[in-house]
Amino acid sequence: MTDHDSPAPAVPSAPGQWVLLSYRLPREPSTPRITVWRKLKRLGVVQISDGLIALPADARTREQLEWIAEEITDVGGTATLWIAHPAALAEERRLARTMTDARTAEYQAVRAQAEEARHQPDDERQRTLRKLRAELRRIQRRDYFPPPQRRTAEAAVEALHPAHPSNTDSAPEENSA
């Protein structure tokens, strides 16, 4: 099975393992629904349909979804965890693409904020640097298929540091020398 499309990143020749969570939560109260959804979003899940989400299977994703399944049953819902292979590579690529697109948008937002902060005063820029590093770390934790924007966002954030080469030669009003 070879890829006849335009050059794509190295893709395996068979679909990999995914962990799926199918769940149902009572409509009311809404707080547990929101809590669960926030946790799933934080993990970067892809939603296949209403009440069915997926992540590439590894020890961590499987465990995290197991605990969320437990939490769902604790609040009176139902949850089943599945380990599955998409039937075709194209299916898997579609899932991966959805996840990559979501992360790309997040990285682009970080990069935009970093570029906007370039000309902030020193201490304000340091605060932005700390904030964006933390934000990057959160995104990286749920980035299963890294897009090229990951690197550009990282570079834009690190460029906010006073010791970064771009700041030592182009910041006349600063005293970083």
């Binding site: 809590t35 197991e66 605990w67 399944a69 437990e70 939490e71 604790d74």
Partner: peptide, 11 residues
Amino acid sequence: MRGAELGHHHG
């Protein structure tokens, strides 16, 4: 372990 008393509970 899932289902155990000594597991994850209430966050």
